[in-house]
Design a protein around this nucleic acid. Structure first.
Lengths: 341, 341
DNA sequence: CTGAAAGCGCTAACAA
DNA sequence: TTGTTAGCGCTTTCAG
C-alpha cells in the first residue's frame, strides 16, 4: 500500500517498456488503444500512483506552496489556512505552513527554508516587525510567484487579497460615534503593517466626518501584535490612567482585542459601562464573551481561498503575469453589547 | 536566489567531479582538506542548498510528515499543530496538514493522499466517525511509522500521546459534586472515540465514588463532534426539557463546550444559576466568557511536540521498534464561575 | 506504434 | 584522494 509500485513494475509485468507505460498513463496519442487499455487496467488494479517526488525532480516543480503567517493558533489565520488547504488540496498542491511569531528574523528564515524546499510559490502575510521587504521584491522580480494576503507589502506589485480595512474601521468607529461616544481610543498593531495604517485611516475618517477631535494620547501601538501580553496590558493601563480618559476603544486586531478584554477584566473595568469596545476579531465565540463583543470580522476562509487560487494561477501561468490585481473583500460588523452606551 | 545552484555548478566552477563536491559537502573522510575547504567556501559563497527533492528521490524519504486532524480551526488542534511544527521544523521535516471534518471518508482520502505524497510518517488524531482502523493497522504492520495523539486507536499497538482523560474528567466531575451538584449530565463526542469513553469513565467513577446515581437520560452523544450545530442544540434542548432536569453539564470536547454555551444563551438559560457547566476546551479566552468558564485543559502544544518527537524517532530508527509506548500527560482543571452553585 | 536512452540532482559503489 | 558510473522514478526526445 505505501510501498508503491513504479512504472517499471508495470512495464515488467506487461512486457512493455517504461516509456510505453508512461505514454499510456499520460494519455498520449502515439499509443495503441489496446496497449493503453491494458496498462490502464493493470495500473488501476495495483492501484498505481506516480511518485510525486520523481515528477518534481523532473519538471522542477514541487507542487507545494509555502505559507508564511504569524501564527496558526489565531482565529483569523486558522480560518484562512482552512481556506488555503481547501483549494490547494483540490488542485494537487500541498501546503507548508510556517510561523513568524511576528519576528522579522523568523520570517526571513522561513522564506529561506521554503525556498530551499523548492516551493512553487508563496502565500504571505507579513509579520508585525517586518519593514524590509527587499527579499520578497527580489524574488518577485525574478518571476517567483508570491501572493500577499491580509498583511500585504504596500510597495510590491503583485497579487494581493485584503479586506476593506478602511471601511471596516470606518463603520466600527461610526457605530461608536452614533452610540454617543466621542472620546475614542485606538489600540493597534505595529504601524509597519499596512492594515494598521488603513484601519487607522478609516477610524480617523469617521471621526473627521463627525467633527470629532482625536487626542493622540489615545493612540496606542503594540508592536508585537499581542504576542507579548505585557505590552498590551501596559498600553491598556496607560489608556485607563490618562487624565482625559477615553470612553471607548477601537481595537484593530484579533489578539489585541482579547488581550485588551482580559486586561480590562483584571483591572475591574466594566465593559461597556467603564469603557466600551469594538474590535477586529475572527473569534467564533465573541458572542459568548462578557459582555458579548461587537466585532469587525473578516472573511478569513474566503480570503485564504482567493489568495490560493491567485497563487496557483500565477504558478501555472505560461506567460509572465502582466497585470497584478488586488482583490478586496468586505468586512462584517457584528453589533453586540460591548459597544453599547 | 531561488534558482538554486546544483552540485554540478560547483563541480564545473572548481574543476572537480560531482562526487568530490558531494563528499566535501557531506564531510566525508576520504577527501583532501584543501579541496574540501575550497568546495565549502565556494558553496557558502554562492549560498548552495542541496535540492531536497533529489535527496528524497535518492533515499526514498520525503522528509515530510503527514498530519490528520479533524480541523485546524479548533483551539486544541491549532495549538497541537503549533507544537508539531516547532519540532518538525527543527528536525528538518515539513508538515502536511489535512482535515477530516470528522468524516471517515475524508480521513481515508487524506491518508491515501499523504501516502501518495510519500510522507515518511503519520501523526493522526482520529475523526469522530471512524470505527474502522484497519488501514492504519495494515500500514503499521508493514512498518510504516504512525503516532496517534489525543484521539488514538485503541487496538493498534504503536506510539501514542494522550492526556489523562480519565483523571481530567474525574477531577472536573468531583469539582461539580463537591460544589453540591448531584444531577450531572454528560455531553460528549461520538462514543467511537476512546477519549469519549475514557472521559465518561472518569466522570462515572467520580459519581460512583460519591455514591451519586446517574440517569442515563442525561448522557448525550453528538456524533459529529460539534461540526453540526443543530445536533448539539438538540442535545442541549433535550437535556433542558427533561422532567428530571440536570443541574450541571459536564462536556467533553472543545467545540461542544462552546456550542453548548451558545445554545444555553440562546434559550435564556443562565449559567451557572440555571445550569452549571464544566467543559474540556483549550480556548485561551474561556476566562472572558459570560460566565467565565471552568475548564479542563489539555497541554496541546506539548502533546504535539511529544508526538512529533516520537514519530521522527520512529522514522529515523534503524531497527524496527519493539516497544511502543503511550505517553500520558496531565490535564489542568481551571476553576472559574460556570461551575459555581 | 513502441523501445532505448538521456537527464532532472544527488549519493555511493567501484575504479584508479 | 579523486573520478566514473549507475541508479532513485519519471518523461521525453530520438530511433526504429
Amino acid at each position: 500500500m505505501f510501498e508503491s509500485y513504479t512504472i517499471k513494475d508495470i512495464a515488467k509485468a506487461l512486457n512493455l517498456s517504461t516509456s510505453t507505460v508512461s505514454r499510456a498513463l499520460n494519455g498520449s496519442y502515439e499509443i495503441g488503444p489496446e496497449t493503453k487499455k491494458l496498462v490502464l487496467e493493470y495500473a488501476e488494479k495495483i492501484n498505481y500512483r506516480p511518485n510525486p517526488i520523481a515528477l518534481s525532480l523532473k519538471d522542477q516543480k514541487s507542487h507545494s506552496i509555502g505559507v508564511v503567517v504569524c501564527e496558526v493558533a489565531n482565529n483569523y489565520f486558522s480560518q484562512a489556512i482552512n481556506g488555503i488547504e481547501s483549494i490547494a488540496y483540490n488542485r494537487g498542491y500541498h501546503v507548508i505552513i510556517t510561523q513568524t511569531h511576528e519576528s522579522f528574523d523568523r520570517e526571513s528564515a522561513n522564506v529561506q527554508h521554503l525556498l530551499s524546499r523548492h516551493v512553487d510559490g508563496l502565500l504571505v502575510s507579513l509579520s508585525a516587525e517586518t519593514t524590509d521587504v527587499a527579499h520578497y521584491k527580489y524574488l518577485h522580480e525574478k518571476g517567483f510567484p508570491i501572493v500577499f494576503f491580509d498583511r500585504v507589502a504596500a510597495d510590491i506589485n503583485t497579487h494581493k487579497v485584503i479586506a476593506n480595512n478602511f471601511k471596516g474601521a470606518y463603520e466600527a468607529t461610526e457605530l461608536l460615534i452614533n452610540t454617543g461616544f466621542t472620546k475614542i481610543a485606538h489600540l493597534t498593531n505595529s504601524n509597519n503593517l499596512l492594515i494598521s495604517r488603513d484601519r487607522f485611516n478609516g477610524f480617523k475618517a469617521a471621526l473627521d466626518k463627525h467633527n470629532i477631535s482625536f487626542n493622540y494620547a489615545w493612540l496606542k501601538y503594540c508592536n508585537h501584535g499581542g504576542m507579548i501580553q505585557e505590552e498590551v496590558e501596559q498600553a491598556v493601563k496607560d489608556l485607563l490612567n490618562l487624565d482625559d480618559r477615553p470612553e471607548a476603544i477601537f481595537i484593530t486586531s484579533d489578539r489585541l482585542t482579547t488581550c485588551c478584554m482580559s486586561t480590562l477584566k483584571n483591572h475591574g473595568v466594566k465593559v461597556p459601562d467603564g469603557i466600551a469596545i469594538v474590535g477586529f476579531t475572527n473569534s467564533d465565540v465573541a458572542g459568548l464573551f462578557d459582555p458579548p463583543l461587537t466585532v469587525v470580522r473578516q472573511p478569513a476562509f474566503q480570503m485564504g481561498q482567493m489568495a490560493t487560487e491567485m497563487l496557483i494561477q500565477t504558478i501555472e501561468s505560461k506567460r509572465p503575469i502582466e497585470d497584478y490585481i488586488t482583490r478586496e473583500v468586505e468586512t462584517e460588523l457584528i453589533v453586540r453589547c460591548s459597544s453599547k452606551k
